[in-house]
Amino acid sequence: MPDRHHTEVEEVTCREFVELVTDYLEGALPDRRLELVEQHLVMCDWCKTYLEQFEATVEALPGAAESESPSREAERALLAGFREWRAGG
C-alpha cells in the first residue's frame, strides 16, 4: 500500500541526501534545501556515516597523485630543449 502521507511533509530523505552531498560540501545548496539536509543529518546516523565516508574518500585522493619522473630519454630531450631555449633558440 503506497504511503499516501509521507510526502505531505517536506524533508530530505536518505535517497535524496546521497545525491546532494557534493552540493552540500561545495556550499551550493539553496537555503531551504540546506536546512532540510541539516534537519535530516541531525537524526540520521547512516547519512552521517555516508557523509564521513565521502569526506574520507576526498581526503585520501591526493594520495593517488602521480609522481613519476620522466624517462631518461624524455629527460635528455627536455634538457636539450631547455638549453636551446636558454641559448635564445
Partner: peptide
C-alpha cells in the same frame, strides 16, 4: 527512501586509506 542497507562505519579510515 531511507537506508535499507546503510553504509557500515569505516574503522580508522585516515590510516587505512
Amino acid at each position: 527512501d531511507h537506508w535499507a542497507t546503510p553504509p557500515r562505519p569505516w574503522e580508522d579510515p585516515h590510516r587505512r586509506l
